[in-house]
Structures are given as C-alpha cells and as structure tokens.
C-alpha cells in the first residue's frame, strides 16, 4: 500500500551508500579470505598498458569522487570538472590508461577503496589523516590547502580583527562538513563553539546563508570558490595555514598502482603540468 511506495522513495545517501557497499560485500563474499582488492567483478583483470599496474577493468583507471567540492571536483553539464578531475585525467594519460570517474558520497570513498570493486583509487580532495591511513595508502600529496572561516558580510559581531576569540564562544554555531578536516580544525581551535555538521559541504554554506549557523569552516580553496560563486553575501574572517595535504587514496593491496600514481604525480610536478592545472582551476 502507501508504505511500500514511500519506502522506495525514501533512500538517503547514507542508506544508498550502505546498500551499495553491501552489494559490494556480496560481490567480495567469495574471496572473504581477502586475496586481492581487484577481484570479484574483475576476475579477468589484466596488466594495463604500462605493464605492471593492475586495475579493476583492464586499460581503465577508475577514480571514486564526490563531485560537490569545487574547485576540486564538481559536475558541470554532466562533465566532471575541477583540479582533481584534470589531475586524474593527466595521471591516467601518463600511465597510458583510460580515465573514468565514479560518483560516491565523500564518506563512502575510503570504505569503497578498502572494499574494492568500485574504484581503483579515491580522488576527491582527500586530506591525509592518521585514521584514514589505517584504512588506505595515500599517494604523495598534490595540493596543500589551508582552513578558512566565513561569516555573513552583514555580521558585525565577528570580524577579521576579533575572529579568533569571537568564534570561540559559547552559542556560536559553526557549520562544517561531517568528517572533514574543517570539522577537526574547528573542534581544535574553537572548542567552545557548537559545531553543526552537514554531509554535503554546499549545505553548510546554505545553513549560514539561512541563519541556521553563524559561520562556516572548511578548506580555504573551496571556501574562496563558494564565496566568489553562489555565496557572495559571505566573507572570510579567518584563515589559518594548516598546510594539510591532499592525496590520492589507493587500496593497501595495490602498491604497484600507488607507485605508478606517485611516479605520474612526480612527472606532472616536474614538467609544470600540475602548477598549470592549479592555476587554471584556482583562478
């Protein structure tokens, strides 16, 4: 009856992700003894063009990404654009592979890489943290980012001069993306404030715009991008050079791929391609 249709409608990102990985688990159930990350669907995986790199689908390098994070990754007219997306294509080209992107919620990317079968690597503005390093291997960093806090321009209480103290007050609500380094940064530096977590970073900005939170804290490049685009009523009041490093997450079972990606990043760094891509995307 009515309930059936409703249940079908009400799938959240979370449940979808869970279902997704459950499906995956079914896939990998056969090799529960844990032999190879790229087994299951890829029984016929073969060495790629570059010789010793094993990927899910032969000849294709699949990245998991959550395209809600401009200027690193987002969808424009169905096209994956942004620094990470350009970098992924450049790396695949270096390795002589086809580049493919698969859309997974940010908090599902690391689990998906661990489980295997969904993607070869995670490329989604992922900062290196000790917790994540327990689950996956990280490539060499390709971008260094900082933290920024933005508030409504009309907010006279929190300004650039007093932000450090004014943000660290009881009753100040700071919107963050759940599980992000911005959340960890706000918790470390503004322990008195109340954190409001959103699964999607864009919603954290919407929350400030609509008054659900006073400030938004997150990676500087993304905050700048959002402020110059959709959220012009906000302005940055606080920045901190945390120097967190973005890297590509690769399964611990695929060191060959990690080495190949590192090599490609080194080449792109040397020949200036990476700097070009950064300049192009960060404007």
């Amino acid at each position: 009856m009515a309930y059936v249709s409703r249940r079908a409608l009400c799938t959240t990102g979370a449940t979808a992700a869970l279902a997704c990985v459950l499906g995956l688990a079914g896939c990998n159930g056969g090799n529960a003894s844990g032999t190879d990350a790229a087994s299951g669907s890829s029984a016929g995986s073969a060495a790629s063009a570059s010789g010793d790199v094993t990927t899910m689908t032969s000849g294709t390098l699949t990245f998991a990404t959550s395209p809600d994070y401009p200027p690193f990754e987002n969808l424009e007219n169905g096209e994956y654009v942004g620094l990470d997306m350009d970098l992924g294509r450049a790396i695949a080209e270096e390795l002589g592979l086809e580049c493919e992107y698969t859309n997974i919620d940010f908090d599902g990317i690391v689990p998906a890489i661990v489980a295997g079968g969904q993607a070869d690597a995670g490329l989604s503005g992922i900062s290196i943290t000790p917790e994540r390093e327990e689950q996956v291997d990280f490539s060499d960093p390709y971008y260094v980012d900082n933290q920024a806090v933005a508030v409504m321009s009309s907010n006279a209480d929190i300004t650039e001069d007093n932000a450090t103290d004014a943000l660290n007050q009881e009753g100040v609500k700071i919107a963050v993306q759940s599980g992000s380094t911005g959340e960890a940064f706000a918790a470390e530096n503004f322990p008195n404030a109340e954190l409001v977590s959103f699964p999607n970073f864009t919603d954290a900005f919407a929350a400030v715009n609509s008054g659900q939170a006073v400030a938004v804290c997150g990676n500087s490049a993304v905050v700048q991008q959002m402020l110059s685009g959709a959220y012009t009523d906000l302005h940055t009041v606080y920045t901190s050079a945390t120097g967190e490093e973005y890297a590509i997450a690769v399964s611990k079972d695929n060191p060959e791929l990690l080495a190949a990606i590192n090599e490609a990043i080194a080449t792109l760094q040397e020949d200036g391609t990476l700097d070009e891509l950064i300049a192009k995307n960060m404007g």
Partner: peptide, 23 residues
C-alpha cells in the same frame, strides 16, 4: 534529517564513517 545537520542516529554514524573510513 541527517542531511540538514540534525544529530540523529545516521548522522552520528556517518561522522565516524567519514573520519575512520570504516563501515
């Protein structure tokens, strides 16, 4: 309600999933 920052069951779980990478 997790999607809009209400700290309910899934949201709490989700936060740990995002930071630890475990399901």
């Amino acid at each position: 309600l997790a999607a809009v920052g209400v700290m309910e069951l899934v949201m709490y779980a989700r936060t740990i999933v995002a930071s630890t990478g475990s399901i």
